[in-house]
Amino acid sequence: MTKRKIVFILLPQVELLDLAGPAQVFTEARSQGLAADVIFCGFHQPVNSAAGLALAPALHYNDVSLDTSDIIFLPGIHAETLSREPAAEKAFLEWLRSQAGKGVLICSVCNAAFVLAEAGLLDQRECTTHWRSVKMLQQLYPAVKVLTDVLFVKSERIYTSAGVSSGIDLALFVLEEWKGALFAHQVARGLVVYHRRNAGHSQQSIYLAYRNHIRAEIHRVQDYMIEHLSTDCDLDTLADVAAMSPRNLARVFKTQTGITVHQYLTALRMEKAHTLRKDPAHTMAYIASQCGFTSARQLQRILLP
């Protein structure tokens, strides 16, 4: 099986957390079985980071061959560098445009959105950047639709994030789209972070809510429910997963999470239903079947009280 490539572009004066955060998400995902290669590229040797640490990318960006299954991440750069030289070299911008033309998924962290804007990839698109740079981005590139107070923005195959730690949220969101909510949640747990989704969702993710406990058997039950939403998930089945009696599971689950098993399961089903509704190809009957509701009518009653 061909591995998907995740390419990080190391621009001059790259911010270390903008780079290390998303890179660690995919590194952790690989340790959990993700079939992907994480590659670091640039066009200067070495790359001096904003913190003063010199980095030596193994490849020039022209040395990688990408297709529509691959991902490019552009970490942000130091703000003073941005004010002096908002764009990268012209050859790189041409390369970036060519990758976008092939359908490669392109993600920017923080003020790397300026590089995408200079390449013309954000014209007439909604996007975001670090809150300190929002006004500057809009002034320099009036064709860009800059959103404020959002963690990240998805616009077809171009994703932009607000800055610093939101690059981790964006990487987890990309991973969730690729491998599903449970896998992204497991990676987030491995990194001991709480991930959020997009501007259309609450900043609190139901997949990580009610998980700030250390009872492994309750985590197993919660994971099982996420994976089996289309099934009954009755208390007897969940008790077998936890190796507890049904009565004890109900008691311990409420003690550890603060809500009942039924309340948690309903919240998971509602979250998935809202997500599936965003695809116009999905009928209410299909959504109901995927989320464990008895019928489309039941789901409609819940969604439209």
Rank of each mutant, 00 (worst) to 15 (best):
S245G: 15
D236T: 15
Q256P: 03
Y264V: 06
A250K: 05
V261R: 01
T237Y: 07
T237D: 13
S245N: 15
A250R: 06
M244Q: 15
M244N: 14
D240R: 14
D234Q: 11
S245H: 15
P246T: 07
L265V: 11
F253N: 04
L238E: 02
K254G: 05
L268Q: 02
S245P: 06
A250T: 04
L249S: 00
D240W: 12
V241P: 08
L268T: 02
Y264R: 10
T260L: 05
V261F: 02
T255S: 12
P246Q: 12
R251I: 11
A267G: 06
D236P: 13
L249R: 01
Q263N: 07
L249F: 01
K254F: 08
D240M: 13
A267H: 03
L238A: 03
A242E: 07
G258V: 05
K254P: 02
V252G: 11
H262G: 07
V241Q: 10
L238T: 06
L235S: 01
Q256R: 05
T237G: 11
A243G: 14
P246D: 07
A250W: 04
T266M: 09
A250N: 03
T255C: 09
Y264S: 05
Q256E: 13
A250Q: 02
L265D: 10
V252N: 08
T255R: 13
A242N: 10
L235C: 00
T257A: 06
I259H: 04
V241D: 09
A242P: 12
R251G: 02
A243W: 06
T237N: 11
T266P: 05
S245D: 15
T260C: 03
K254Y: 08
V261G: 00
A243K: 15
V261Y: 00
H262C: 06
Q256G: 04
A243S: 15
R247M: 07
A242R: 07
G258L: 02
A239V: 13
T257D: 05
V241N: 10
Q256K: 10
F253W: 04
D234T: 08
L235W: 02
R247S: 02
Q263E: 13
V241H: 06
I259K: 03
D234V: 08
A239R: 14
A243Q: 15
L235M: 03
F253L: 08
D240G: 15
Q256N: 05
L235D: 00
F253I: 08
D240Q: 15
A267E: 10
G258Q: 07
D240P: 11
K254C: 09
D236W: 14
D240H: 14
L235G: 00
Q263F: 05
F253H: 03
R247W: 04
G258C: 08
A242K: 05
A242S: 11
A267C: 07
V252D: 12
R251A: 04
